[in-house]
Amino acid sequence: MAEIQESGNKKKGGKNKQKKMTVRVDFTPMVDMNMLLITFFMLCTSLSKPQTMEISMPSNDKNVTEEQQSKVKASQAITLLLGGDDKLYYYDGEPNYKDYSSLKETTYKADGLRAMLLQRNRAAVNEVNELKQQKLNLKISEEEFTKKLGEIKSGKDTPTVIIKATDDASYKNLIDALDEMQICNIGKYVITDIAEADEFLIKNYDSKGELSQNLAE
């Protein structure tokens, strides 16, 4: 509230001087208002939750790792090799070190890695889209959606992606590859260290098979 205080002095002869008016504003009610606003926004605003990504990491136990790898069918395994200068290679199943053309080169663009993964995971992608539509139509609950989504992504006929990065690859390359796993509904993927044989594949591909020819000779 504002208060106005008047003050004035009388001159000799009975005349008053001009009155001086001073205004004092009381900000005490503003404190209560601010507290009410803060309380209101705290109750009505939902705190942002951190978004996390589930990543399947290989075990340190070599026996367990070999057992897990043996369960992966070669026809369903796709190995991504992240190279330097934003280069991206991949091969299906077991690598063929004698044939450099068995290693394919692609890009991180939508018509590159994403198109390839969507084609390999087409059945699961269609099922996920139908499942999302059921959720939008309120035919299934959030818990049922999450459960069925996990079952679809980890189905028997879905591909398994193995991601290997060279020392020349950037963190951006790895993040881009992981983003495509989510976009393409890949439920089975793993990040593991690159082997010397995989680095040989890249060098042999860049040399158009000269390294494998030299080894054969």
Results as ranks from 00 to 15, higher is better:
25 V>F: 15
202 I>D: 01
92 D>P: 00
41 F>M: 09
124 A>M: 05
5 Q>D: 02
99 D>T: 04
69 Q>K: 10
30 M>L: 14
153 K>V: 09
158 T>K: 03
139 K>P: 01
37 L>Q: 12
6 E>A: 06
216 A>H: 05
95 P>W: 07
14 G>H: 02
11 K>D: 12
22 T>D: 10
173 N>R: 05
94 E>T: 15
136 L>Y: 12
61 D>E: 11
119 Q>F: 14
34 N>Q: 05
66 E>A: 12
96 N>E: 15
171 Y>M: 13
2 A>L: 10
175 I>M: 10
214 N>P: 00
107 T>L: 04
50 P>M: 00
22 T>Q: 13
146 T>F: 09
144 E>S: 11
184 C>R: 00
68 Q>N: 12
177 A>K: 07
44 C>H: 08
89 Y>L: 03
188 K>M: 08
145 F>Q: 02
163 I>D: 01
15 K>Q: 10
150 G>T: 03
173 N>P: 01
42 M>S: 09
210 E>L: 09
183 I>R: 13
193 D>W: 02
108 Y>H: 11
42 M>H: 07
105 E>P: 01
5 Q>T: 12
123 A>L: 07
84 G>H: 00
151 E>T: 11
28 T>I: 09
158 T>F: 06
151 E>N: 06
148 K>S: 11
137 N>V: 00
173 N>I: 04
140 I>P: 07
9 N>E: 13
28 T>F: 14
198 D>M: 05
181 M>A: 06
211 L>Y: 08
84 G>Q: 02
117 L>E: 04
157 D>R: 02
99 D>Y: 06
136 L>N: 12
193 D>I: 00
91 Y>S: 03
181 M>E: 02
8 G>S: 13
48 S>M: 10
170 S>Y: 08
115 A>G: 06
117 L>N: 03
98 K>E: 15
182 Q>A: 15
24 R>N: 08
155 G>K: 01
198 D>N: 09
162 I>V: 15
85 D>Q: 13
65 T>S: 05
60 N>C: 03
39 T>S: 15
31 V>C: 08
136 L>A: 15
101 S>I: 03
154 S>T: 14
19 K>P: 06
208 K>N: 14
47 L>P: 02
128 V>I: 15
71 K>F: 11
110 A>P: 00
179 D>P: 00
73 K>I: 01
109 K>D: 12
193 D>H: 05
29 P>V: 09
125 V>F: 12
124 A>L: 02
25 V>M: 14
158 T>C: 08
108 Y>M: 02
136 L>R: 11
81 L>M: 01
9 N>W: 03
87 K>N: 15
144 E>A: 15
35 M>I: 12
33 M>G: 03
7 S>K: 13
145 F>N: 05
188 K>R: 09
92 D>Q: 10
6 E>S: 05
18 Q>L: 10
116 M>W: 09
52 T>W: 15
121 N>Q: 03
215 L>P: 04
167 D>P: 00
85 D>P: 01
172 K>E: 15
25 V>G: 02
21 M>A: 10
163 I>V: 14
77 A>K: 15
63 N>P: 01
205 Y>H: 12
5 Q>Y: 04
